[in-house]
């Protein structure tokens, strides 16, 4: 692979590509290496232009996931993980830019589909970042207690006297991140649960 190929990608991102080269350039994009280059160049471009829009492409969420996973596997402290998420969130939106670039070349119907996805994903991101800033805090404040033996019906409520070291030992980073995501997912589901239930009830009434 020569730099010449990359040159055409660079030109594409700068809107300087000739129309006859367009097909050829887009065809090259099918190779993973080229796609990486495209993404990297567009990121560089965004950083240079100091674009600070909120990232809102669907696959950005999976980037967060990947980042979080690596953070938790490295057994980094909670504060560090938090900082990571914030850093990602304030990052320029290179992936959205890629989407827009491609969209402008693609047909309008595909373009519209993507923009809708972008809106939806941006909502998800806000929720994701919002919660992940709160969740670790919650864990600290809550005085969580771990039962080392199964609860049997009739046993008194979870003992808050369970000591902290035991908590940290058994609830490792992987488990911790799952706990955080499930609690935040539960809250998200609840936010929109009310009216759904209500609507169904109204529909049922009509049928009755």
């Amino acid at each position: 692979m020569t730099n010449k190929n990359f040159e055409s990608i660079s030109a594409l991102l700068d809107d300087e590509v000739m129309s006859k080269e367009l097909d050829q350039t887009l065809a090259q994009m099918e190779q993973p290496e080229q796609i990486d280059t495209f993404a990297r160049y567009s990121l560089i471009g965004d950083v240079l232009r100091q674009e600070q829009e909120l990232v809102s492409e669907a696959n950005f969420a999976s980037n967060i996931q990947a980042a979080l996973r690596s953070v938790s596997q490295d057994a980094v402290e909670g504060e560090a993980a938090q900082a990571e998420v914030v850093a990602i969130a304030s990052h320029p939106s290179w992936s959205k830019r890629v989407a827009n670039k491609v969209k402008s070349f693609a047909g309008t119907s595909t373009g519209r589909g993507m923009s809708q996805m972008a809106i939806a994903a941006s909502v998800a991101l806000v929720a994701v970042v919002g919660v992940s800033n709160m969740a670790p805090q919650e864990e600290v404040d809550v005085s969580p207690a771990i039962m080392t033996s199964p609860l049997i019906g009739g046993v008194s409520p979870v003992s808050l006297s369970a000591d902290k070291p035991a908590t940290q030992k058994s609830a490792n980073q992987m488990t911790q991140s799952r706990i955080n995501s499930l609690i935040s997912d539960h809250q998200q589901q609840l936010r929109v649960a009310d009216d759904k239930a209500e609507k169904e009830k109204e529909e049922n009434k009509v049928i009755d």
Partner: peptide
Amino acid sequence: VEFSVYIQRPLESFKSPIVLQDGATSFVM
């Protein structure tokens, strides 16, 4: 009140069960 049920692939490292309580909210895995 509401509760959510999640069923997921098993985590290797997790020591069952985990019971957390935050006010009225319980978390059991």
